[in-house]
Design a protein around this nucleic acid. Structure first.
Lengths: 158, 158
DNA sequence: CCTAAAATCATTCTAAAGTATGAGGAAAGA
DNA sequence: TCTTTCCTCATACTTTAGAATGATTTTAGG
């Protein structure tokens, strides 16, 4: 059990050892072949140098964790500072908007459709339509976009 | 001048070459010393193997380029609402809105209906519809109210 | 308790908005 | 000159918004 674990852990080292042993055998055999030539020694040394340099490179590439250079790129996110919004209660009471109507107005300005507002407030679409109609009458506008524009201008919504 | 630049660029390669040359001298010298022993060849080969493996490792560690990893960090930019309006040209070009589309967007935000915008710009209602459709696609929204909300948030319109 | 305002919902229409597609002309670049 | 983009317009269709009306149910206040 422990032997297997040992093998598992030192797999790379054992592989390296085996390869080295095999290479030595190969070199021993090559030695016999090259020894008959005059400059065989230089060739032999050169081959060894090249092979083991390559082995070192291969080993390093295999065993070292890849270097990671982290480049931080800043992406700008634009956020409107709406901290200083003050509801214009004078205008609100002048127009006589109810709390529910103001709520609907707010959601309209956020870009929600009538059915989405209905879902969000857990009421029916018809109810929202009634609210919007009353809203437009009270604000004296014809469309939701006008209502939004005026509500922002009058500080009824941020 | 060009020689200096060449040296500068191939510093690592030249260093490697010099080291290799020095090592060969060393090995030649060692050869003379070890040749008198019986198993000198094996020791010699082992030394070469170890040295060049080390050289390969060192070279790899020195020369490998780090992998570049890009990390996007969102930087929050707060926009003052009370100040003068500054068109966010970066966002505008990012979305790829044409001048006519921006014009239509502006009028939409002012509460005008499509036909009113058409009259104002002396074009047909269908043209405005086309503009709005393209606008919504570019801004990735579904309704004009969403387009207005996003345009204000991104400072495309006041 | 009673009432007025507010909130809820429905139905029926009409108007407006939005989608999809094709196409022609003008201007700007490559 | 050729290509691309923008602006223009049209037709046909679907979806959503809005108007008008009526009705029921809460809810707060006199």
């Amino acid at each position: 059990m422990t032997i297997r674990k040992f093998i598992e852990k030192n797999k790379a080292v054992l592989l390296y050892g085996t390869c080295l042993a095999l290479l030595l055998f190969l070199l021993k055999w090559l030695e016999l072949r090259f020894v008959i030539f005059d400059h065989s020694m230089e060739i032999y040394i050169g081959a060894i140098a090249v092979i083991f340099t390559g082995l070192g490179i291969w080993l390093t590439l295999k065993l070292t964790k890849p270097k990671v250079e982290t480049v931080v790129v800043e992406k700008e996110v634009y956020i409107k500072t709406n901290g200083e919004f003050r509801l214009n209660e004078k205008e609100l009471s002048r127009l006589g908007l109810s709390s529910r109507e103001l709520e609907v107005l707010q959601l309209m300005a956020d870009g929600y459709s009538n059915s989405e507002i209905a879902d969000r407030l857990f009421v029916s679409l018809n109810t929202i339509k009634t609210h919007t109609s009353n809203l437009f009458a009270k604000m004296d506008v014809k469309r939701r976009t006008q209502a939004i524009e005026q509500a922002k201008r009058l500080s009824l919504i941020p």
